[in-house]
């Protein structure tokens, strides 16, 4: 069992800083404006100076160990899907999907990712487009690449920043289905940073947590 916890994250417009957690198989949504989402992501990504565990603000707990946000051990088990950017423009879709594995160069994980790649590409409907440059592809394809990377990485927790927003109307149902199906396959926990609670994108969130009144 893995659990991503956060503590005392300042919430713009909320009465007091936010604390909470999300674990495998649970879908949680934080409602907050985009500016605050970026602040959240900053907390997740920046490698903070090593501090005692009591000073951690976001961390991942597993059965065996805990990892502070921003550390390689944390980012290995937590997949982050950004709304603005899912792929490197100057790489092909194949290279984008394999990028973290090609960088971290753990032979076993890379081999596994290369083995899983055809099935993931088929699931995403990208089999014929793997050699296309990401810069030539639509933002929708970039979201699919983010999703594909998560499928290859098999993370304990996925943090998605309004990933459904901005997708063309005609592509939205297909993305919705694929995203929900991927979560079912992975059994990962989902922390969805959303700017609106009007739409749940078929993800059946456990509870919305309001991060901001705006």
């Amino acid at each position: 069992m893995s659990r991503m916890c956060w503590r005392n994250i300042p919430a713009n417009g909320a009465d007091r800083p936010q604390s909470g957690s999300v674990e495998n198989g649970r879908h949680m949504r934080l409602i907050m404006p985009e500016k605050q989402q970026l602040m959240w992501l900053q907390q997740l990504l920046l490698e903070h100076a090593p501090a005692s565990r009591t000073a951690w603000r976001i961390w991942l707990e597993t059965d065996t160990a805990s990892a502070q946000a921003g550390t390689p051990a944390f980012l290995e088990r937590v997949s982050i899907m950004l709304r603005q950017r899912g792929a490197m423009a100057n790489l092909s879709l194949r290279e984008n999907l394999l990028l973290p594995f090609l960088y971290h160069a753990e032979a076993e994980a890379l081999l596994q990712a290369e083995t899983d790649l055809p099935a993931v590409a088929e699931f995403l409907g990208l089999t014929d487009e793997l050699d296309r440059q990401a810069g030539e592809c639509s933002p929708y394809t970039h979201r699919l690449i983010s999703l594909g990377r998560a499928l290859l990485q098999k993370p304990a927790i996925i943090v998605a920043q309004d990933i459904h927003v901005g997708i063309p109307f005609e592509d939205l149902p297909a993305f919705r289905t694929r995203f929900a199906e991927a979560l079912k396959q992975l059994r990962s926990g989902l922390l969805y940073l959303a700017s609106s609670e009007q739409e749940d994108w078929g993800l059946h969130f456990d509870q919305p947590i309001r991060g901001s009144a705006s």
Binding site: L45, L46, L82, Q84, R85, A87, M88, L99, Y103, R149
Partner: peptide, 20 residues
């Protein structure tokens, strides 16, 4: 130009998120 455009497109954040 290449690196500057990467920053503008937010690719630096993407790389951070992948632990790169």
């Amino acid at each position: 130009t290449e690196i500057g455009n990467m920053h503008i497109r937010g690719e630096d954040t993407l790389l951070h998120s992948l632990g790169i």
